[in-house]
């Protein structure tokens, strides 16, 4: 016992160092394994608050462009509505019983694009009905998946994440593939599993596929920037330009799939 005490006293520096490093690596391994940043919810709230204060300052400088973007989106939605019914006279009940999705608007309070694993924090949380695994989109295209929720905030795993894989479909030939991020440029992603008989052109649109468990079908993802046909490999590659500009992201919508509980319970029964 005496010897043990002397040993610990003598080597306390090294022992403490190893202990702290082991804790760090365990924390890190844990967060990597679950592909999500599980944080204690109270800390998340504190962090969210600090980010919110800081983004409020920035928001004043971006009011103009934010207004413009929202007005454009309004105009587009109005136009889409007018196809369905006459907006000026009709008092049509939009939320019908069989509505599939509910859109929750939120503001980005923190966002990064230059890490290997990027996360976005928004100012809506459990209080507003946000839950884990909901999908998040912007006006232009898909953004990511909710990975953690605190009372007032939620964190989103951005498409710009080394573990991010999205089931996508090429709009003109219905072919399904998986979109990944290359961890170095926030504008581009990569599709690496295109069958050889498929030839793509620059500008071809890709959307989310129905095989994606997270995103609703047919949401805009991006366009083909460059197509790399390979002679030897069985699969072709294509560089995809994201429709969403992650560097200027301000307003997003969290999508609540109203049929998800029903679908999940059906799937559970199959197993």
């Amino acid at each position: 016992m005496q010897n043990l005490r002397r040993f610990i006293l003598k080597y306390h520096f090294i022992i403490l160092f190893i202990l702290l490093e082991v804790i760090s690596i365990l924390l890190l391994a844990n967060s990597q394994r679950f592909h999500r940043n599980r944080m204690v919810n109270t800390t998340n709230d504190v962090v969210g608050k600090v980010y919110e204060w800081s983004s409020e300052v920035g928001n004043y400088f971006r009011l103009n462009s934010a207004n413009k973007q929202l007005a454009e989106e309004n105009a587009m939605l109005r136009q889409q509505l007018s196809v369905v019914y006459d907006t000026t006279t009709c008092t049509y009940d939009i939320i019908k019983g069989d509505t599939l999705y509910k859109y929750i608007p939120a503001q980005v309070v923190n966002n990064s694009t230059n890490q290997v694993n990027n996360y976005i924090i928004i100012n809506k949380g459990a209080k507003d009905g946000i839950e884990r695994d909901m999908s998040v989109i912007s006006t232009d295209g898909i953004v990511g998946v909710v990975t953690d929720v605190s009372r007032h905030y939620a964190s989103i795993m951005s498409l710009l994440h080394s573990k991010s894989v999205v089931g996508v479909r090429f709009k003109n030939n219905q072919e399904i593939a998986g979109l990944k991020w290359q961890t170095n440029n926030y504008r581009y992603g990569m599709v690496e599993d295109i069958p050889t008989h498929i030839v793509l052109q620059k500008g071809d649109t890709i959307v989310t596929s129905s095989h994606s468990n997270i995103f609703p079908e047919d949401l805009m993802v991006g366009t083909v920037e460059e197509f790399y046909p390979t002679a030897v490999d069985a699969l072709n590659k294509a560089k995809i330009r994201y429709a969403t500009d992650f560097s200027t992201l301000r307003h997003v919508y969290v999508i609540k799939d109203l049929h998800k509980p029903e679908l999940d319970s059906l799937k559970a029964r199959l197993q």
Binding site: S24, L27, S31, N37, M39, Q115
Partner: peptide, 9 residues
């Protein structure tokens, strides 16, 4: 703040 527990630590 960066959502990476253990990395910077």
């Amino acid at each position: 703040f960066t959502g990476t527990p253990g990395l910077h630590a």
